[in-house]
């Protein structure tokens, strides 16, 4: 395909634009399809970007922290806690370590056991929150030292939490991208069908144009320009409505944290503006393909 085909679309040809009758159900069908698909694509894009952010956030938060859990008889708990804190204080790559207060542990367990949890009466392990420095620490070496100094201490570096979360976030992101591709494919298929219907309905127009010496490129341009512009206009409407919809999604605190981060943030709001030109491009190629194929059938 020549680059001039695209510049011709942008430049337009007043006479060529008029040869195709303006009315017909394919007109609004194309615009509506483009609008609906772009509306959905905005949400798919929001999902994809949000899952990306969530993956990064979860990864960062869990990658730089660890927990030491101490399960020991009541009489040995304080001694082992001190021993663990001493070990951690002398371990390279550990920026900070602190034993969690009973109130903090109670707050952590409260969602499962309720507010009246008798913490003193239960054999609840002591938790030590560990924050890594930028260079990180040797987890295997630390495990061995802890085993020697505090036999009840177990290091949890969050690997088993982090991996499934990262996998889940990656899958969600893939789902978003796949949705966008499927939406693009469905839009191409629908616009191709609409273009075929329009070409069939206008076979008389095509016959007249061929009779007076119109080349295929001229006829195709008349149809392609119309469908491309309709798709662009519909897509702009769909994108704006989609962005309004995303903007009015419940805030994180209103939804109890479940929808945390869903939507666009900062420069992410610019991404939906790419969808109308993409939709126009899809319409351009879909109509061009359909028109050239149909012309070979008609004459």
């Amino acid at each position: 395909m020549k680059f001039s085909a695209i510049t011709d679309i942008l430049r337009g040809d007043k006479q060529a634009d008029r040869v195709v009758p303006p009315s017909g159900h394919t007109a609004w069908l194309t615009s509506f399809t483009a609008a609906a698909m772009t509306f959905l694509a905005v949400f798919a894009l929001a999902l994809s970007l949000a899952t990306g952010r969530l993956a990064d956030r979860w990864g960062d938060a869990l990658a730089h922290s660890a927990t030491v859990r101490i399960s020991a008889p009541t009489g040995q708990l304080d001694a082992q806690t001190r021993a663990v804190l001493d070990v951690l204080a002398t371990t390279p790559g550990i920026a900070r370590a602190r034993a969690m207060e009973d109130a903090e542990q109670r707050a952590l367990l409260e969602p499962w056991f309720g507010p009246d949890l008798p913490l003193d009466a239960l054999p609840i392990p002591r938790l030590i929150e560990v924050t890594e420095s930028r260079e990180g620490y040797d987890s295997e070496g630390l495990r061995q030292r802890l085993a020697a100094e505090a036999p009840g201490a177990v290091l949890d570096d969050h690997t088993r939490w982090r991996r499934p979360l990262a996998v889940a976030a990656g899958r969600l992101r893939l789902l978003g991208v796949t949705s966008i591709l499927l939406i693009g494919g469905a839009m191409a298929a629908m616009i191709t069908l609409a273009a075929n219907a329009s070409l069939a309905a206008n076979s008389q127009v095509i016959r007249v144009l061929r009779l007076v010496g119109a080349r295929d490129a001229y006829i195709v341009r008349a149809f392609v320009r119309r469908f491309t512009l309709r798709a662009l206009a519909g897509s702009v409407v769909g994108a704006v409505l989609g962005m309004i919809g995303v903007a009015f999604l419940p805030a994180a605190d209103m939804a109890g944290g479940f929808l945390t981060g869903l939507g666009f943030q900062g420069s992410g709001w610019l991404w939906p503006f790419l969808l109308p030109p993409l939709a126009a491009m899809v319409a351009f190629f879909a109509t061009r393909f359909a028109a050239f194929r149909k012309l070979k059938e008609l004459t």
Binding site: V19, P21, V212, G213, A214, R215, D216, A217
Partner: peptide, 28 residues
Amino acid sequence: RDEVAMLRRRMGVVHQDCQFLDHLPLTT
């Protein structure tokens, strides 16, 4: 197909059923 179109520009064809673009005025 394009060469056929170019040759048709050197011919004028008057059809029995006079095919026109019905949505456009005569001058167009």
